[in-house]
Amino acid sequence: MTHAGGHTERVRQRTHEGFLRHKGFRWAQIASGLCVVAVGVYFVTAAQLREPPSGGSWLGYLLGTASAGLIVWLACLGIRKRAVSDGHYSLKAWVSAHVYLGLSLIVLATLHTGFQFGWNVHTLAYTLMMLVIASGGFGIWAYSVLPHRLSANRGEVTRKQMLETIASLDAQLQEAAQPLDRSGAAIIRHSIEDTEIGGGFWQRLTGAYDNCANRQAMIRARALPRPKTERDVEALAKVEGLMQQKADALALARRQMRITALLEAWLFVHIPATFALLAALIAHIVSVFAYW
């Protein structure tokens, strides 16, 4: 905070760094330092003992407490993201710390296990944690690669405009279809009424729209017999042109939804797995203290 002219000038984001590079990789450095210290202490301690230190040793407790604390704190990002408070915080810094401290858990929690795995609730918690981290890793990949594609696909068109374009093409189709006969009109109605733009999450993610109503309508329109009058030929050609335009507009919107779905897909693993992890973690801690 600098004082200029009798009032406090607020802190403004002047640096232009992504969350991974935040403050010159500050959290990457902190997390790596943490890992190096943990590994160092672990192996020095291990050298003095007959068995490697397990979760029950003083080092195990230390690592376990730190890891559990970290997990809870990492899970709080979901609240931090949504609670917009007035004070000075940066969600980017939180995300940066979330990413690197989350990755550091691979080392901290593994050391905590003392490399003892089995078919029990303890290893379940460990596995779930690794699943959360792995899905988060996919998230890092998605966040570093997909924004570019998202932006390139939409250009300067907004979601709303994409939908409006489709709606406007539908209105034009409606008007252009007036001269068509009954079978022609049925085809256009199919395109206007039955076309689903997005569909379910899976459909958006895979981008499979083989049974798209507009697409089927286009195939059926092409199969129609050639109309008798010149006027009707023209009308049919106009309708086909509009349906092609609609197909292009649909493709654009669907590509956008596909990239957006990809950007979100990993969260569908990351978040439920986090809740499962929290539950398993409680089970692990309770069972350790109750039954060890």
């Binding site: 403004r12 984001q13 002047r14 232009h16 760094e17 992504g18 969350f19 935040h22 993201k81 917009v84 000075h88 915080y89 940066s90 969600l91 980017k92 939180w94 995300v95 966040y143 924004p147």
Partner: peptide, 10 residues
């Protein structure tokens, strides 16, 4: 700017 998770908003 504070609420941007990736640092895109400046």
């Amino acid at each position: 700017v504070r609420a941007c998770p990736t640092g895109a908003a400046i």
